[in-house]
Design a protein around this nucleic acid. Structure first.
Length: 426
DNA sequence: TCTGGGGTCCTAGGACCC
DNA sequence: TCTGGGGTCCTAGGACCC
């Protein structure tokens, strides 16, 4: 039986989450911003129609915001994460196998539905998600993931599809492919689309039907990815549904500072905080890290004296211990810190993760690993129960506002994850 | 004044080994 | 008057994704 893939993708996800709890926002231009209220990361259709671009820095939009009464939100990841879970749970009821691809997208395996009308089935999925979570979702159906992506994009921009397009039965398949720019194909970014356009391949149909001469050039330039994209466009699947998530290979925590930081001690506090956040993630995933990297840089928009350094330390023994990692991070920082620079961003990365049951004892390791494990368990348990940050290392800085703290000035309440902020019906 | 954050995969080239 | 060659592992950098 030939495989059939569906891609369910929430419409303007972050904006839609805000609208669920604030219905007055329907019909108005709405945008959600990145950390520190920096740039636009989600736009309602009305905001898109005004020409507001993805990633646009918010200070460039102030005139537009006033003129068109654009409603602006800081990001509220607790809300979006929780809403995502609800959407994914709903979707998983409609297929044997589902793959959560991102916070707002999932692939569903719809193979074996035989003669059932999949467009109709897609509409049923959309209404269930809308009814149970309040989130609007669009669905693209096709023989491969790459085609399902295209079907989904087409469904979103063609109102007559009412949000569902099954490419396996569409009589417009060729014209849809011809109407899909190469840069809109999954796996083709700005660099590859530039190359393809230069050799005369402008749309998905051109790419699918490229002759062998062109195919060879594409393969040389784009490697196996290029070959796979062409196969997938022809309807030959190269990617399948991944039902169980692969273990993470690395963890990064980094932030841009609203105001640049010069002092070593402030950077140390910020990094100790990032280490704490990362180590918590590490333990949540039952993993340990074998290396820690620390990086920092000045503003990337000031090219003249751009300063970037990264230092990696390979650990003698894999660890889950926040305190130990903070110490290494401090050492790494001292090596790369240069006095007189105005640092705009810093972060830590844990690499070479392994399952924490596989930690090898070190021959000269004098740390009491059992004791540290117990301490970390207690730390996590307290923070889970009493709120994150209740128990923290002194190295992360004492209480009070810090210049490096991320700001969320326009954040909506934690409607679904905090009893004190639950919406009231009046 | 003000420009996000966290990932994955692939490839080329060097080091090293036999 | 002339340099071995092939396999493997690691790393850095590039490209992509949401």
């Amino acid at each position: 039986m030939p495989p059939v893939f569906a891609l369910a993708d929430c419409n303007n996800f972050y904006v839609s989450c805000e609208r669920v709890f604030n219905p007055k926002l329907e019909g108005r231009p709405v945008v959600v911003l990145s950390n520190n209220d920096g740039c636009v990361v989600s736009r309602s259709n009305e905001a898109k129609a005004l020409g507001i671009k993805m990633g646009a820095p918010v200070f460039e939009l102030s005139g537009m915001v006033k003129r068109h009464r654009v409603k602006v939100f800081s990001s509220n990841y607790a809300l979006y994460g929780d809403m995502s879970q609800r959407v994914m749970e709903t979707l998983s009821g409609f297929a044997e196998d589902t793959e959560i691809y991102s916070i707002d997208e999932a692939f569903l395996d719809l193979s074996g539905f035989g003669n059932e009308n999949l467009t109709y089935y897609g509409h049923r999925i959309c209404s269930a998600v809308k009814q149970w979570t309040g989130i609007p979702v669009s669905i693209g159906i096709a023989e491969t993931k790459t085609l399902a992506k295209i079907a989904n994009k087409t469904a979103k921009k063609s109102p007559e599809t009412k949000g569902v397009l099954d490419l396996t039965v569409s009589s417009r398949k060729e014209s849809i492919l011809a109407g899909t720019k190469v840069s809109d194909i999954w796996g083709i970014g700005s660099s590859y689309s530039g190359f393809l356009e230069k050799i005369g391949i402008k749309n998905a149909l051109h790419l699918r039907d490229a002759d062998s001469l062109l195919t060879n050039r594409i393969k040389r330039k784009m490697g196996v990815c290029g070959t796979r994209i062409i196969q997938e466009l022809k309807g030959v699947p190269c990617y399948s549904i991944e039902t169980c998530p692969q273990p993470k290979k690395g963890i990064t925590v980094s932030r841009t500072f609203r105001h640049p930081i010069e002092s070593l001690s402030e950077l140390k506090e910020a990094l100790a905080t990032f280490v704490s956040m990362g180590a918590e993630k590490l333990r949540k995933g039952n993993a340990a890290t074998c290396s820690i990297s620390v990086f920092l840089h000045t503003s990337r928009f000031k090219k003249e004296d751009f300063y970037f350094r990264i230092k990696t330390i390979d650990l003698p023994v894999a660890t889950i211990d926040t305190g130990e990692l903070i110490r290494y991070a401090g050492e790494a920082l001292e090596e790369i810190y240069r006095k007189g620079c105005m640092y705009k961003r810093a972060g830590v990365m844990f690499g070479d993760l392994l399952p924490d049951i596989r930690i090898q004892m070190g021959l000269f390791d004098d740390r009491n690993r059992k004791r540290s494990e117990k301490l970390m368990k207690t730390l996590d348990a307290v923070n889970l129960k009493m709120g994150s940050g209740t128990l923290a290392y002194a190295a992360t800085g004492l209480a009070g506002a810090k210049s490096w703290h991320t700001v969320f000035e326009k954040r909506s309440p934690f409607y679904t994850t905090d009893w004190n902020q639950i919406p009231e019906v009046l």
